[in-house]
């Protein structure tokens, strides 16, 4: 009797876990693809650290739809895989510091705003990402001169964060509802 009860629930549970795994893998693949395409684009501004950060759209979508834990998994998978595929070991440190600090701030602001106003969440994530990368740059070069990039990086973070936030917002509108 007990087994009959537990079996169907086990079945649905494992099915939903499989589905979650598939969805997260899909999101990771999408993030990797966006990252790869973005790295092929020529740099618009010849300033290190200024980039669109389109792969963050996937992080935002994941955190909004599936929560911070899954978003963290997708982010880490994307960073490590992109390093193995396209990058060199050096960029891992930058990506990890930027990505993790961005994730932390995104999560906190997301809690504060209860998941609304995705563009604000995204802007703060971008600011955190750029701050963390500048900190790594400062740590690596040990030259205070790199701090001259701070205002440029902040302005670009606000603009690109707004853009990626709006991208995520409109993408979420068109994605089929979570089942």
């Amino acid at each position: 009797m007990k087994q009959e009860n537990s079996n169907p629930s086990d079945h649905t549970k494992s099915a939903s876990r499989t589905q979650r795994l598939a969805v997260l893998a899909l999101l990771t693949a999408a993030a990797l693809m966006i990252y790869a395409i973005e790295s092929l684009l020529p740099t618009f501004v010849p300033i290190p650290g200024i980039r669109l950060g389109l792969a963050n759209v996937i992080t935002l979508i994941t955190i909004k739809r599936y929560g911070a834990r899954d978003a963290l998994l997708v982010l880490l998978a994307r960073i490590f895989l992109s390093c193995f595929f396209f990058g060199q070991f050096m960029s891992l440190l930058y990506s990890l510091c930027g990505g993790l600090f961005c994730m932390l701030v995104t999560w906190l602001i997301c809690l504060l705003l209860a998941g609304n106003y995705l563009w604000i969440i995204s802007i703060f994530g971008a600011i955190a990402h750029n701050l963390a990368q500048l900190a790594v740059a400062f740590f690596l070069t040990k030259t205070p001169g790199v701090l001259a990039y701070l205002p440029f990086l902040m302005i670009s973070a606000i603009l690109t964060g707004l853009f990626t936030g709006l991208c995520a917002h409109f993408t979420l509108k068109h994605l089929p509802a979570k089942r």
């Binding site: 060199q88 930058y94 690596l140 001169g145």
Partner: peptide, 15 residues
Amino acid sequence: TLLPITCLPNHLVIL
């Protein structure tokens, strides 16, 4: 003097 030239992978900064 606005921005230094930086090469982060090579830890090089030109001020």
